[in-house]
Design a protein around this nucleic acid. Structure first.
Lengths: 208, 208, 208, 208
DNA sequence: CATGAATGAGACTTCATTCAT
DNA sequence: CATGAATGAAGTCTCATTCAT
C-alpha cells in the first residue's frame, strides 16, 4: 500500500479526472431521474442509486437535488444559447429571426427528447426537465430582446413573449408525440400563428 | 321517548352536513397545499395539518392525495364547463366563440387565482394545479369541437388546440402577475393572435 | 315514525332474535377470519367487515377479538364434548376408548376442515383455529381422565397425553391434505402407535 | 500520512465486525420477540426496540420481520443438521438412530429454551418459533430418509414422520415445563412409543 | 476524497375504540 | 341498541444527511 506512493506523483491529474467523471455521473443520473420522476418526485437517493457512487459522495459535489437541477439547467442553457445568438445575429427581419429561433428550439427539444426516454410512468404532466426550463428562459429573453430592438411591432412585449413561448412549448410537446417528428410542419405552424397574430395586433394598435 | 323523535328526525341531516363540511375542509386544504407546494411536493400530512381533523380522518374521505387532486379537478371542470358551453351555444362565428371562451377562461383563472395565492416556492414552471389541468382538457375539447363544426379553418386541429391553450395559459399567468388584472387587454391580445394566425395559416393552406 | 309504535308491541321478541342473529353473524365472520388470517393476524376490523353490521355494534357483543375466539372455542367444545363422553361411557377397555375417541377427533377435524376453506394465503403454519384449540383441550382432558381411572397403564400420564395429542394432530393435518380423507387408515395408524407404544412402555416399567 | 495506514488497514475489519454485531443484535432481539409475542404478534418495531439501534437501521439488514424469521430458522437448522447427520451415520439400527435423533432433538430444544424463555402470553398452541419450524422440516426429512433406506418397516412414511414429530414436539414442550429437564426420561418415553408402535403397525401389515 | 452504515425525522396507513346521533 | 365517523396511537418504511473509517 505504500507502493502506490510512486504512482501518486500523477495523482492530481487523475484526481481531477475522477472528480469530473463523478460529477458527470451524478448529472447524467439526475437528468434521467428528473425526466422520469419529475423534479419534485425525484429524490437524492434516486439519483445516487443510478450511479456506482456511494451515498455520501453526492454531497461532495452538490448540496441538494436542487443544485443538480440548476447545474443541469445551466448546462442546457450553455448549449442552447449559441443557437439563439446566431439567430439574432443573422436576422434580417423579425420573420427570419423567428423562424430560425423556432427551428432551433424544436430541433433542440427533439434532440433532448430522443436523449431522455420520455417514458415516465404516471402523470408527468408537463414535467419540468432542466432542459425545458433553461430553454424557456433563453427563448423568453431572446424575444424580449428582439422586441426591444424594434424588430417586432410595439405590442405588449411581455404578452408576446409569453404567447410565443406557450405556443412553442405546447406545439413542440404535441409534435414530439407524433412519429416522425415533423419539425418543418410544426415550425411553419408556429411562425404563421405568430406572424399573422402580430399583423392583426398591429392593426388594432393602429386603429383600435 | 317520543320527545326524542323530533331530534332524531334531523339527526341524519346533521351528520351529512358534518361530513360535507369535512370533505370541503379537506378539499380546501388540498387546494391550498397543491398551490403552494405543487402536486408532488404536497403530502397527505400537509393537507390534514391545515385542517382541524385527525390524521386518520383523511382516509374516511380519500384514499390518497391523488384522489383529492382528482376531486379538485372535477370540481373545477364542473364549474368551468357551463361557461364554455354557453360560449359554444351563443357563438355566431369563430371569432365570437373565441372571444367568449377566452374571456371566460381569463375570468375563471382570475377568480381562482384570488382564491388560491400562487405563491409556490420552487420553479413552478406551469405548475399543475388541479384547476389548470382540468381546464386544459376542457378547452382542448372545445376547440377541437369548433374546428370539427367547420367554424374554424382546416388547419392542423391538434396544433391549433395546443397553440391556443399554451398561449392562453402563459398570457393568463402573465396577466395574473400584474395588478390589476387587465382581462380585456389580455383577451384582445390572445384573440388577435389566434385570429390573425388563422388568417395566415389559411393563406398558406390555399397557396403554400 | 310514530306509526311503528303499534308494531313495537312485539319488539322484545324481535329484538332478541336480532341480537342472536348479530351475535351469530359476528361469530361466523370470526371463524372465517381466524381460519384465513390466524388468530394474531386477524383484527376486529376484519371481522366486522365480513358482516353487515356497523363497527360500533361489535362492542355491544364482544370486548375484543379474544372474546370472539373464546366464544368460538367454547362453542366447538360444546359440540365435541358429547362425542368424547360417549366414548368414555361405552369404553370396555383402553383400546375401545382410544379407537372411538380418535375416530371422533378425526371425523370432527374432517368436518370442520370442509366447513372452513383452508385456503389461507401465506404461512398459516399450524394456524390455531378455535376449533382445534378446543379439541386439543378436550382430548387432553379425556386422556388424562382415562389414565387416572386406571384404564391405561401407569406410564407418565402427562407424557402420554401429550404424545397422543401431538400425534393425532399431526397425522390429522396430514390426512386432511390428502383426498379423499382416509379416516379409517389414519385412525388405525394412530391407534397402533399408541397401543404398541404403551405395550413397550409397560414392558420397560416392569423390567427396566 | 503513512501513520494512518496502520489504522486504515484494519478499518474494513472493524466495520464488518460492527455490521455482524448489529445483525446479531437484531437476530437476538427477533428471537426474543417471536418467542414472547408469536410470529404474527411481533412487529418490526418490537424487534428494534430491544436493540440500541435506530429505527431505520433495521432495514439495512432485513426487509421485513419475515426475513428475520427466515434467517433465524436457517440459523437453527444449520446448527441442528449436524446432529441429525451424525445420528444417521452412526446408526446401526433403526432403534439406535431413533434414540440418538430424539436425544439430540431434546437436547437442542432444552438449550434453545434456556436461551429464549417461552413465556408467550396468548394461546401459543404449538407456537411457531423459527427454531421449531426449521427443526420440523429437518426431522421430517431424516425420518423419511431412514424409512427409504429400509431401516424402518414399510408403514405409511408420511404418517410416521408426522406422528414422530408431533409426539416429540409435544412431549418436549411438556418436558421443558418441568424442572429439571428430564432428557433421559422423555427420550425413553418417545422411543418406546415409536418402537412399540412400529412393532404393532408391522403386525397389522403382515396380518390385517 | 470515497465509502456506506447509522441516524432519526417524518410520511403513509391501519387499527381499536369512542360517542353523538 | 345500531350506526358509522372521528380519533390518535402505533406500525411500516423511506429519506436526507452525517461521520467514522
Amino acid at each position: 500500500m505504500t507502493l502506490s506512493l510512486a504512482v501518486d506523483t500523477h495523482a492530481p491529474r487523475r484526481r481531477e479526472q475522477a472528480k469530473a467523471a463523478n460529477r458527470e455521473a451524478i448529472l447524467a443520473a439526475g437528468r434521467q431521474v428528473f425526466a422520469e420522476l419529475g423534479y419534485e418526485g425525484a429524490t437524492v437517493r434516486d439519483i445516487i442509486r443510478r450511479t456506482d457512487l456511494a451515498a455520501g459522495t453526492f454531497y461532495n459535489y452538490f448540496k441538494s437535488k436542487e443544485e443538480v437541477f440548476q447545474a443541469l439547467a445551466e448546462d442546457a442553457a450553455r448549449r442552447f444559447r449559441p443557437m439563439l445568438r446566431a439567430a439574432r445575429e443573422q436576422a434580417t427581419s423579425f420573420e427570419s429571426y423567428l423562424r430560425q429561433a423556432v427551428t432551433a428550439y424544436l430541433r433542440f427539444r427533439s434532440g433532448e427528447h430522443a436523449l431522455l426516454g420520455l417514458t415516465g410512468p404516471p402523470l408527468r404532466a408537463r414535467a419540468s426537465t432542466p432542459e425545458m426550463t433553461a430553454l424557456f428562459e433563453e427563448v423568453r429573453g431572446g424575444i424580449e430582446d428582439v422586441i426591444a430592438r424594434g424588430l417586432a411591432p410595439k405590442v405588449d412585449a411581455e404578452y408576446l413573449a409569453c404567447a410565443c413561448i406557450g405556443m412553442a412549448q405546447e406545439v413542440a410537446d404535441c409534435m414530439l408525440m407524433r412519429d416522425p417528428h415533423d419539425l418543418a410542419g410544426a415550425s411553419d405552424f408556429i411562425c404563421d400563428m405568430v406572424l399573422g397574430g402580430l399583423a392583426q395586433a398591429r392593426a388594432r394598435v393602429l386603429s383600435p
